[in-house]
Amino acid sequence: MSLDQLSKDLIKLANSINNGKDSKEFLKKSGNKLKNKTLNIAKSRVNEDTGNYIKSIKRGKVYNFDGNLSVRTYSGAPHAHLIEYGHIKKDRSGREHGFQKGSHVFTSAQKEFEDEFYNDTQNFIDELIMKNGFK
Rank of each mutant, 00 (worst) to 15 (best):
L3K: 15
D4K: 13
L6I: 13
K8A: 15
D9I: 08
L10T: 12
K12I: 01
K12Y: 06
N15Y: 06
I17R: 06
K21H: 15
D22Q: 02
K24V: 01
E25I: 03
K29A: 15
L34K: 11
N36I: 03
T38W: 05
I41W: 02
S44A: 15
R45T: 13
E48Y: 00
G51K: 01
G51L: 00
Y53D: 07
Y53A: 07
K58E: 10
K61Q: 05
K61R: 10
D66N: 13
R72Y: 11
T73C: 08
Y74F: 13
A77W: 00
A77I: 01
A77K: 04
H79N: 04
A80E: 07
L82G: 04
E84C: 07
E84A: 08
E84P: 10
Y85N: 15
I88A: 04
K89R: 14
K89D: 00
S93K: 14
R95I: 01
R95E: 01
E96R: 04
E96P: 06
Q100F: 14
F106K: 01
T107G: 04
A109F: 12
A109C: 09
Q110D: 15
Q110Y: 13
E116I: 06
Y118E: 13
N119G: 04
D120V: 05
Q122S: 10
E127F: 06
K131Y: 01
G133R: 01
F134C: 10
K135N: 12
